[in-house]
Write a protein that binds this DNA or RNA. Structure first.
Lengths: 110, 110
DNA sequence: TATAATACCCAGGACTGCTAAGGATAGAGT
DNA sequence: ACTCTATCCTTAGCAGTCCTGGGTATTATA
């Protein structure tokens, strides 16, 4: 009930992650934190959703990863967007725009 | 690719159906057609998605159904929104609005 | 007499997000 | 020293819902 945060709609997490990585490589935890802070905690990215999503995206060639060290000296796996990932993002952005617009039409159709 | 029509995001079909039934009772097939025509065929409602969705909604008390006859003299099951369905719709509309807005923030966050 | 359009039904599978658990390290506070 | 919190990753298993692809039956149209 109530809780804080909305459940993500299936199919949107990938787009959000790709978009977040567009600004530069980040490790998973940072991706989650950034999405949450950007949305004022409205969207919560669960770790059990995020990491599997990152693995899927790497498998599909949309991101590549390497172990590195964070600002605070911690070991972390950094993800970098590939050119295929950029294409995928562009496609998903286009689809999202169309979809949201179409939903809007249905909702407004009096 | 492209195809015609976009895959629905999981969790949105119910809202679209409830909203479509807000104008008055309709049978399943008509609901699908209306959503499709309202969105210029951008959203395609597959029958294999629609009917199970209607059954779920009836089970949850958001709609009730009765057999009737269409304008064209065909037998069809008409679905009517209940007051609980209206509440549910209101909740889903609110969530959708928040969600879409939050997604927008992530996408615009340069 | 075909064919399309209308109208419903169902089994099966795929995908993806969640819960829930676990491990390891670093820093702050007491 | 000890505890607590925050950081960071990993995995197993479940639940929900949308799709594919098949099926039935009736009516209108060519």
């Amino acid at each position: 009930m109530g809780k804080n945060g909305i459940e993500l709609l299936r199919g949107t997490l990938g787009m959000l992650v790709l978009r977040t990585l567009e600004s530069g490589p980040l490790h998973g935890y940072a991706v989650a934190k950034r999405i949450q802070s950007t949305t004022d905690e409205i969207l919560t990215v669960e770790e059990g959703s995020l990491y599997p999503a990152l693995y899927r995206m790497e498998k599909r060639g949309w991101v590549v990863s390497d172990w590195g060290v964070t600002d605070t000296g911690r070991r972390a796996r950094f993800y970098t967007l590939t050119s295929e990932g950029r294409e995928q993002l562009a496609a998903e952005l286009a689809t999202w725009g169309e979809f949201a617009s179409a939903v809007g039409k249905v909702l407004e159709a009096g």
